[in-house]
Nucleic acid binder design. Structure first.
Length: 330
DNA sequence: CAATCGTGGTA
DNA sequence: TTACCAAGATT
């Protein structure tokens, strides 16, 4: 993983870069290593230091984050970089409390940075550690009720030395051996001390409270391109779903959406709907397209050369794909 | 504190 | 096709 200190660097006494540890840990929140890698490389290439990131334009950071999800992370990332640059002289604070006071850094991330970047004996509790602790101690209390109990167990095992390496080792174990499904107990170095394995219930742990089913909402998205090749787009409000991201104007997303065309022109149905699933609902979007040169009621016209579909969040890129297909039919 | 907030891979 | 899941934070 590109954010880890290589064995050679470690041997030469080269310490981890708190900026890279912080950036990787924020990107890894609820996100797989595979998805993060390319984004981490892109961000560190564009902005090698926290001071560079602090000077970036908001729109550039949001565009670079597009596709990774949980966009509040990107807004908080930039806020955090600016606090570190302006109030800490570009140097991350090296204690748990100061770290957790920064935007976008919660209990897990503050502990991870403290342990991994500063070699402090803090305990990290993420989904991996929860699962490993629940299994080796056969904790049958369901999550999230079990969190305090699992934290206490994790703290009891955290070593005073190299807590960061220990934390990463437990997370690696959870990611590769002690996996949610089909754990590879035959290869596990902790098998002999594992109460879950001994009683044969390891696969069922950690238990979780049942989840609610996702409702389906509908909506209408409008894609307009004028004769100059400009696209009608809008920057979404800073808070809420897809906050701060670029998108197509549209209706509300609800059981029965009200049409809200962003310009009083002739709209054509694209003929194909877009389906997308968010954290807590399914969305079905009807796509309307138009070629016209009327002044828009809402949104901004973006020149063709300045518009990159990759800057859109995924649901909006799906809308673009459908609209593009429709435009190319004529 | 329960709800909100993305996406892509996988069984 | 559907549901579940992944190195959580914020309100």
């Amino acid at each position: 993983m590109p954010w880890r200190v290589s064995p050679q660097d470690r041997k030469q006494g080269i310490p981890p870069d708190p900026y890279r540890i912080w950036l990787s840990e924020v990107m890894l929140q609820q996100t797989t290593v595979a998805a993060v890698k390319a984004y981490f490389e892109k961000f560190t290439a564009l902005w090698p230091t926290v001071t560079d990131l602090a000077r970036a334009k908001d729109a550039d950071v949001m565009a670079a984050w597009a596709g990774l999800g949980y966009y509040a992370r990107a807004r908080n990332l930039l806020k955090c970089a600016r606090v570190v640059a302006d109030e800490y002289g570009g140097v991350f604070p090296n204690d748990r409390a100061s770290l957790q006071a920064l935007p976008g850094i919660g209990p897990y991330t503050s502990a991870a940075i403290a342990a991994i970047a500063f070699d402090l004996p803090e305990t990290v509790l993420d989904g991996n550690v929860e699962r490993v602790m629940a299994r080796i101690h056969a904790v049958e209390t369901p999550l999230p009720t079990a969190k305090p109990e699992l934290m206490a167990l994790a703290q009891a095992l955290t070593p005073q030395n190299r807590a960061g390496d220990y934390a990463q080792a437990v997370m690696d174990l959870g990611a590769t051996i002690c996996t949610p499904k089909n754990p590879v107990c035959g290869l596990c170095p902790w098998r002999e001390g594992c109460a879950g394995y001994a009683s044969g219930i390891m696969v069922e742990l950690p238990r979780k409270l049942p989840k609610k089913t996702k409702p389906t909402r509908r909506g209408i998205a409008y894609v307009l391109r004028n004769s100059a090749g400009e696209w009608l787009l809008e920057t979404r409000p800073d808070s809420g779903l897809l906050g701060g991201m670029l998108g197509w104007p549209g209706s509300d997303w609800s059981e029965d959406p009200t049409p809200a065309p962003p310009a009083d022109v002739d709209w054509q149905a694209a003929g194909m709907e877009v389906r997308h699933t968010f954290t807590h609902f399914h969305l079905i979007l009807d796509v309307m397209v138009s070629r016209s040169d009327v002044d828009p009621i809402q949104g901004d016209l973006v020149p063709h050369h300045a518009f990159r579909p990759a800057d859109l969040p995924t649901v909006m890129r799906k809308v673009y794909d459908v609209a593009k297909h429709r435009f190319e039919q004529n």
